[in-house]
Design a protein around this nucleic acid. Structure first.
Lengths: 119, 119
DNA sequence: ACAAGATTTAGAATAATACTAATTTTATTA
DNA sequence: TAATAAAATTAGTATTATTCTAAATCTTGT
């Protein structure tokens, strides 16, 4: 893994589902000299290594996330994405699909507590 | 729903997860006169009515599908998408998330029987 | 240090989709 | 049915995210 890719992986790990552009801006904010092309190159490399996952968005830029097996809750009002961990989900999937699976992308739409005025 | 939107909905219902361009080509094949803009306009209208769902693809055009609650199995070798029905999934989700959900997008990656050489 | 290869780069190219403003179609009213 | 209002459709352009290209720079092994 290159130095730049490793920095980008760090950023993905401490950021909240950033887009390529979010990452590029963070890189700049940190005072690191890196071109947008390198951000895309590194993201593609990290993705093909399986170090990150891509979350293509309906009408918007793709978001990136660490590749821990987990799903996402997406608020249909404000768009905020939060992580969703369901420990037995792989087991559940294997049982229900009747076959081995290599991974999953689960997004659950809801209205977050803030948008429901509960916070 | 407009006449064109209704025709597009038909096409989505009998096609296999088409892209906007697939739909446009099918419309032309049927001898219907319709511009690409109308395909996009109609898809947006159908989507906001909840009549269809959008499946943004990693590196590729968004695919469209009927809005029946169901997931998808995606072959990581050939890319083929097939429908996945899990009847108790909404119940399972409500239980595991502890909240009401408005819908979900579940994609399970696997290697399809054909790509495993079993067919 | 030097060569070989990998990485990074700026900028152009591409592809999907959205926008705009004008036109056509459809629906409503008199 | 004719006139009018509203909605849908259109061609063409603009935008945006992303990829490509070919040159420049950095790294690594010897």
């Amino acid at each position: 893994m290159t130095h730049n890719a490793s920095k980008i992986l760090d950023i993905i790990n401490y950021s909240d589902h950033p887009t390529a552009d979010d990452i590029y801006m963070e890189v700049k904010r940190l005072g690191i000299k890196m071109s947008p092309a390198t951000v895309y190159n590194s993201l593609a490399a990290l993705h093909s290594e399986g170090a990150i996952v891509k979350l293509p968005d309906e009408g918007g830029a793709t978001r990136y996330d660490k590749s821990l097996p987990h799903g996402h809750m997406i608020c249909s009002a404000c768009g905020r994405i939060s992580d969703l961990f369901i420990d037995d989900f792989p087991d559940y999937l294997r049982e229900r699909t009747g076959t081995d699976t290599e991974g999953y992308d689960l997004r659950v739409f809801h209205t977050c507590p803030m948008c429901r005025g509960l916070v």
